[in-house]
Amino acid sequence: MLATPPIWFILLAFFAALGPLVFIHEYGHYIVGRWFGIGADTFSIGFGREVAGWTDKRGTRWKIGWLPLGGYVKFAGDMDPASMGQGLDKLPPHERLRAFHGKPVWQRALVVAAGPVANFLLAILIFAAFIAIYGAPRAPAVVATVLEGSPAAAAGLRPGDRIISANGSAIDDFTDLTDLTRLRPGEPLRLSYVRDGRAADLDVTIATVTEVDRFGQQYRVGRLGIGSGKLVYEKVGALQLLPEAVKVTGTVIHGTMVGLWQIITGRRPLTELGGPVKMAQLAGQVASLGPFEFVQLLAFFSINLGFINLLPVPMLDGGHLALYAVEAARRRPLGARAQEWLFRGGLAALLTLMLVATLNDLSSVGLWQALGRLLG
């Protein structure tokens, strides 16, 4: 088991990961806003008091805040934190032309969506680079081994069986089956397979296994008890790099969606929800393994940042997009009071989520156990 890196290294790795990802996200908003002629008053990495910054020739203040846990772009005409555009009619005509809320709803929607899209594009580029260097991972969906006493053995699977679908979803690669089962511990699964040229079906219940990583952290995952043949990395042509990278990104997004839904529906414990402390710990641990592992982690962090921001929660990009969809359907925005209550509710939900995630993080690093020993 590897030793956990020191605190200074964890913090350095965390900020080295978070800073570029926040910049990419906010720059997505900023550059699309510029394309539509929207002025930007402030581009900030971090919150709170400015510790460094400069003003460019367009009048945008680029700055770094003392609390580097996020960032924002304040567009012209954004006069309230909820970005509801109140008081737009009070602006001079030349300012109204460059104001965010003076633009058509479709342009505002594209500006908001550009942040998460930028995070997804970054992940795709990182994965494409890894595929160009190492090749695309390939593992035929053929059972090589069956663990004695496992759910697969009890269901009757044998070495040589070729899995063709699981719960109706086609299985083209063994990793497709692995990804599906890992995210569904304890759930029933219907497999279609081919044995000696004949197709058949069987039902199996995925086992729940607790895994411990190299740093001693525990995770609940699903397992069938079958193994594949040797994983190979297949070189692909230049034109296939992006499609392969998009496929990997899509798989990660799907896995994130399934995991979140399982937490919401109670299939997975709420304690598996992590926050900034967990993210910092993971960044430090992976960075200690080497630069290639750290860059790969950045891709996963970038996907998660984009995904979380697309959730339809007011105060997040997804919440703004939902309101713009309502505005487009009604051909007028919701009233200021309705939007205000929605944003208050969204803020309360986010604060609650952050509190739960932080409490989970503190538990994962052993704070409550340490306090219990101290008070006991």
Rank of each mutant, 00 (worst) to 15 (best):
G77L: 14
A114E: 04
R162C: 13
P93V: 09
A155W: 03
S169F: 05
D78L: 14
P116K: 01
V73K: 02
G87C: 09
D176I: 15
S165K: 05
R108D: 03
A123Y: 05
R138G: 07
D176H: 15
L125Q: 09
G135H: 02
G102L: 00
D176A: 13
V142F: 15
L121K: 07
K74T: 13
M79A: 08
P116H: 02
Y72N: 05
V117C: 05
S150T: 10
I124T: 08
P68N: 03
K74L: 08
V117E: 01
W106A: 10
P159G: 07
P93Y: 03
V105L: 09
L110S: 09
L125R: 10
P140E: 14
A154K: 12
V111K: 06
G77E: 11
S169H: 06
P104K: 12
Q86G: 04
A129R: 01
A132T: 07
M84Q: 10
D78K: 05
H94E: 06
K90V: 09
T175S: 13
G156Y: 08
L69W: 04
P81L: 14
P116Y: 00
A144Q: 15
F127K: 06
Y134C: 09
P104D: 07
V146I: 06
G71Y: 03
A129N: 00
F127W: 09
V146W: 07
R162L: 14
F120C: 01
A123T: 10
S83R: 08
R108E: 03
V105S: 11
D176T: 15
A144H: 14
F174A: 14
F120P: 00
Q86F: 02
